[in-house]
C-alpha cells in the first residue's frame, strides 16, 4: 500500500474513530427535534399510536435494518451458490 493510500479514507483507524464520533453526534442531533415536534399519528382510528411515539422512525428504522440483514443471512445460507453455478 502506498503512503498516499494510507492517508485516504475510512480504512484508517484514526479516521474511523473520528468518523464514528461525528456519526454519533449526528444521530443525537436528529433525535433533538423529538423534544419539540409533535408527530401526527396516522392510525388513531385503529387505536395505534406507536408511529407517533418518541423517536419512532429512529428505532424502527434501525430495528428494521437489523431484521432485514438477519433474514437475508438466513436466506443466503439456503440460496447462495458459487457464482459459476450456471456455467457449463
Amino acid at each position: 500500500m502506498s503512503p498516499q493510500s494510507r492517508k485516504h479514507g475510512l480504512s484508517h483507524a484514526e479516521n474511523l474513530l473520528r468518523f464514528r464520533k461525528i456519526w454519533i453526534g449526528v444521530l443525537l442531533l436528529v433525535l433533538l427535534p423529538e423534544f419539540f415536534v409533535h408527530h401526527h399519528a396516522y392510525f388513531e382510528a385503529q387505536g395505534i399510536h406507536i408511529d407517533a411515539s418518541w423517536g419512532f422512525h429512529a428505532w424502527f428504522g434501525f430495528l428494521a435494518c437489523v431484521l432485514l440483514v438477519l433474514i437475508a443471512r438466513v436466506l443466503g445460507f439456503f440460496l447462495k451458490r458459487k457464482d459459476d453455478y450456471y456455467d457449463e
Partner: peptide
C-alpha cells in the same frame, strides 16, 4: 441516519461473497 448506523454496525454481517442466489 439510523438505517445508516445499522449499516455500519452490521457491515461484518453484510460482507459480499462471490456467490449468486437461487
Amino acid at each position: 441516519l439510523f438505517a445508516a448506523a445499522a449499516f455500519f454496525l452490521l457491515l461484518p454481517q453484510m460482507q459480499v461473497t462471490p456467490t449468486i442466489s437461487l
